[in-house]
Structure formats: structure tokens, C-alpha cells
Design a protein around this nucleic acid. Sequence first.
RNA 1: GGUGAGUUACUCAAGCGGCCAACGAGGGCAGACUGUAAAUCUGCUGACUAUGUCUUCGAAGGUUCGAAUCCUUCACUCACCA
Length: 405
Amino acid sequence: MELQEKIDEALGEILRGCEEVVDKKKLEALVQNYFENNETYTVKAGFDPTAPDLHLGHTVLLQKLATFQKFGGVIKFLIGDFTAMIGDPTGKSETRKALTREEVLVNSKSYEEQVFKILDSQKMDIVFNSAWLDKLGADGLIVLTRFFNVARMLERDDFEKRYKSGQSISISEFIYPLLQGYDSVALKNDIEIGGTDQKFNLLMGRHLQRSYNTNKEQAVIMMPLLVGLDGVNKMSKSLGNYIGINEEPNTIYAKVLSISDELSWRYYELLSEKTLKEIAMLKVDVTKGTLHPKVAKENLALEIVTRFHNEELAKLAKSEFDNVFKANQLPTDMPEFTLCSGIWIAQALVDIGLEPSTSQARRDIKQGAIKIDQVKLSDEKYLLKSGEYVLQVGKRKFAKVKVES
RNA sequence: GGUGAGUUACUCAAGCGGCCAACGAGGGCAGACUGUAAAUCUGCUGACUAUGUCUUCGAAGGUUCGAAUCCUUCACUCACCA
């Protein structure tokens, strides 16, 4: 293959799924330089030290970093331990509690374990921004704040809104983007990747690199935010609409299948390793009716489970799922509990964690949501006799109980 | 610092002395229909072995037979003025 062709192909992969790119020329030059002279460049992405549980939303970014690793990018995996003390004002987040050094280290270890499922550990550095921000000092901070003015800071959407409606904006929130931008200065960074919600902060890096006369001006790539399982909000742990990469194969599989058909295409674009062309063809097949939308979604689920576990477990997850929900069989793996004979069914359900309260349990019994050995229970006051049973709440909560006399 | 408005369940938001465990909407849970999809329809949505009891309407006191509703103090939020 011609060199130029290789370069074009690499750029195609790099740009895939990006929402917006700033300074595309710079990006192209870096990649070209890598192919021609084998010179690497740095790619920075920032992560919050408080959230070491990665979910698919994070992997959109990580997969993009992995792509860069293939084409000369050396990843600066930045853990914002210093900036976490302030809390990113982007969106609606509140002030966060400061973490101790130990907590940060523990979290970063956990990051490593998870991140290496996607990234090549040989081509990346994990860095902490406290390394240079601790040393910045008050005088350094004053210098930093000179490089930006309030009027421009207020141009940022969320600041503007809050300012106009008279809500409070603390000075520290103004400093946050500056510090994040300073990270790029300190790292002499070439490219930064972040979510679209980070646009302002990402561009700040460019601005400050220019201000500090670093002779560098990072290119910026913005990735769209992955919508969560509810199909409305961005995927986040606090909203509970996430798929964690450390979750069980069965759980991941089931969660992927529970998203809406429409949303599954978005997931295809951002998470699948299929080419855009292949995905477009799948879409056509579904529209024509030659491919059932559920099958398309099943394939996506299989692909995702395979990435974080393996193909065998993915297939098992599928057959398990089909068994339970298509054929109405019981799951092969259920939590098991031992109870005493004569226990009230509602109490039993609470004790084993299938219901939050006996009140809720009663309501569910009334509505026919509780099953014992797959038989609907209608008696609210039912007492369990000794023996072994499978208790079920709704369609997806199961438990095996052994009742002893 | 002054003046005024507000603080209600997961969220928004009614209620302004008894009919209030608190209208309505969203969310959530469950049932029907399905592909555990979407859409739609229905029910539920403080706790308690329960036609009753207990704890909730920013916090603490008070008035009253009776308070989310009235009074006092405190805390917080917002608006206008300085």
C-alpha cells in the first residue's frame, strides 16, 4: 500500500465518530510525520480520580485513544487529582470532597486494571496533575489567571446561563478550566481528547499553550457523549443508566438488549469495531426487513461482551438470556439463601434483598408479580414451609431459597 | 448591611387550620401486549404481619381538641436595593 493511502486510512479511523475536531491540519501533520519519520506525539485525556468504575461511556474515549496508539500517539492518561478538589463546573456537578493521596492511588490502580482492557500499557503514561499544579504556587496561579478574562469566561454556555439568571458562580469554578488548560502546557501536549461537554475546557488548553509561548498548540478532538440505557441522559453511574465494563457477561448482555432499537444504532457507531460501511449495511437490512432488529442488537451485545470478557462467555450469556426470557426457564445461576420455616413471604423477600420493604412486597403480590416455583402467588399472608423454592419478583429478579424447619 | 419571596416525598410542583401519607406531572416498579425494544393500555409508588398504627411537608419551640397550613426563633436559597 502506498504511504499516503496508509495515512489516509489511519486518519479515517481516527476521525470516525468524532463530533468535532479543532485544527484538523495539525492532526493530519502529526499523523503524517509519524508515518514518514516515525516520530510520536502525545495525546492527552483527563479522568476524574473519584470515578474508577469505568462504563461504556468512558470507553468511547478509550477506544479512540487506542486508535491513536496504533498510529504513533503516546497517551497521557491524566488523572485530575488536583483539579478534583475544585470540581468541574461543567454541567450540574456540585463541589466534591477532597480525596486523600491514598485514595487517589487506589483509584488510579483500579483505573489501570480496567483501562488495560482497551489500551496498550506500553504506549501510555499515567500522570497526575498534582505533580505540576502543587508546585504552581500563588504567584504561578496569578500569572495563569492573567491569561484569560472574565468576559470570555462568561461566554461559556453554562456560566452564561447561570450569570444571566443570577445564580452563583464561584471564582474557583473560573479557575478550573484554567488549571485543566495548564495541564496541556505542562505536558507539552499535542492532541487532547474529551467529550463535547468539555469543549470550552479543551480549547483552553490551546489558548494557554499559545499564551505561554510553548510553540505547541494542541489539536482537540471531541467525542459525543454516550446516551445511557434510558435513552435520554448521558451514561453515568449516578443515574444508574450505565453498563460497567467489569460487570458480569450476563448483565452486560441483558443491559445491551434492553436499550431501544434506535439507541442501538448510536451504540453501534460509537462502540462497535465494525466499519461505518458495515453498520450502514446492517441498517439497510433492518429497514428492508431482511434482518430482525433484535438480531442486530444481539450481535452488538455479543460484540461488547466479547470485548470485556471473551467470545465463549458472550455466547453463554446469549443462551442464558434466551433460556430465561424466551423459553421462560429459570436462570442457571441464582443467589441462594437459607431461611427458617414459617417465615412470611413478604419478609422473606425483603431478607434476601429481592424487595426493599414488606409494603412493596405486598403491593407486588397484589399485582401478581411474585412467583414461587414459577407459580403466581396471590395470598399476601403466605408463609413459607420447609423445602426448596425459587422465588421470583417481576421478570428479572430470582433467588433460590432453602427453608429449614 | 437593608427589604421582600421562598424551603413540601426520587425530581418538578399543588395544598395555606380538620375531608392530608398530602392534587398533578415526570421518573420508577409491576401487569397486559411484545422482541425483557419502542409505542400503547392498566395498577401501584412513606413504613409497619396493616380496613388499623407509626413517622414524614427546611430545623427547633409555641398556639390549638386538631398544624404541611397560624405564631416565634434559627438555618439555607433566591430577588431587589446598598
